[in-house]
Amino acid sequence: MTLQHQLLRPASRYFFSALQLYRAAFPAEEKVPLIWLLGRSLKAGVDFWAWHDGPAFVGLTFSVASRDLTYLIFLATSPSVRGQGFGSAILDRIAAQHAGRPLVLALEPQDQSAPNHRQRAARLRFYQRNGFSLQPFQVVDLGVAYDTMVRNGRFVPAQFDHLMRGYTGLAYPWYGSKIIAK
């Protein structure tokens, strides 16, 4: 495995592969417009990356970092490479790049009545195998509630709120995440 990453821009080699994966991997209510992701990724501490193994596209990530924590907003691997360790390798690389800071993510709650319950359970197990633990908080983004998980530390609501204010800027009153205790 020769895993590498490249900044995603419309002219980049993996842009259309990443765009196709982004569209397929996330439900409509979880996606933000691609133009938002591209615009935000121009800010310091915001990384929108295509991941590749040699010339083969394997996935994408979108993360936001502050001095206190890193929030992995999107992670998706190409269906053709799932189960081959690329997701775990990507998580390890992001954690290493942001060493000393908690790595936070949000995922769909475990709801037995959800039509994709098996997928949700599989995601939870994947993240737990990769060192993440569930936290006693939920984040509500754009009206959708997510459980929080963290690797290398704990979820601190005030730190998360600070990071999101910096990330969303003037859009915070509209986009801002609401943090609730479970």
Rank of each mutant, 00 (worst) to 15 (best):
F48W: 03
L142G: 15
E108A: 08
A76W: 01
R154A: 11
G83K: 14
I73H: 03
Q112C: 12
V58W: 07
L163H: 05
G100Y: 13
A114F: 11
A89V: 02
V46F: 07
D111H: 05
D141V: 02
H98F: 09
Q119I: 09
V58A: 10
G166A: 08
S88T: 15
A121T: 14
Q135V: 11
Y71R: 00
R82G: 01
A114I: 10
A56Y: 10
V81S: 12
G153C: 09
F126V: 12
P55A: 10
L72A: 04
P55Y: 11
M149N: 04
A122G: 12
S63F: 00
A121H: 13
A95D: 04
Q84A: 15
W51M: 12
G166C: 10
A96N: 07
R129D: 13
A89N: 06
A145Y: 00
V81P: 15
A50K: 13
A121Y: 09
Q97F: 02
Q97R: 05
Y146H: 01
D141K: 00
Q97C: 10
R165K: 12
L60P: 10
G153R: 15
S133K: 14
V58G: 12
M149Q: 05
A122R: 13
A99D: 06
S80Q: 11
Q84D: 14
N152M: 06
M164D: 08
A158P: 10
T148V: 02
L60W: 08
N152W: 07
Q112Y: 14
L60A: 08
V46P: 04
R101G: 05
A121C: 15
H117D: 04
V46Y: 06
L134W: 07
H52T: 03
E108L: 06
F126R: 15
A106C: 06
R165Q: 12
R93G: 06
G83S: 14
H52I: 04
R123Q: 11
W51T: 13
Q110A: 10
R67K: 13
L107Q: 09
F48Q: 00
S66W: 04
F126Q: 15
P109R: 06
Q159D: 15
R82Q: 15
F86D: 04
Q112T: 14
V140T: 08
R154I: 10
G87M: 11
L69C: 03
S78E: 10
P157A: 12
Y71P: 03
A65P: 12
R123P: 06
T77Q: 07
L142T: 05
A76E: 05
L124K: 14
F126N: 15
Q138D: 02
G166E: 11
S88E: 14
Q128W: 07
G143Q: 03
L91G: 01
L60S: 08
I94K: 00
R101V: 02
R123I: 06
L163N: 05
R120P: 07
I94Q: 03
Y71L: 01
S113N: 12
A114S: 08
F132T: 08
S133T: 11
N116L: 07
P157C: 11
L134V: 04
F48D: 01
M149C: 06
L75K: 05
L103Q: 02
R101Y: 13
V139D: 00
D68N: 12
L69V: 04
D147M: 04
L105P: 02
Q110K: 09
H52R: 08
S80L: 08
N152G: 09
S133P: 05
L91C: 04
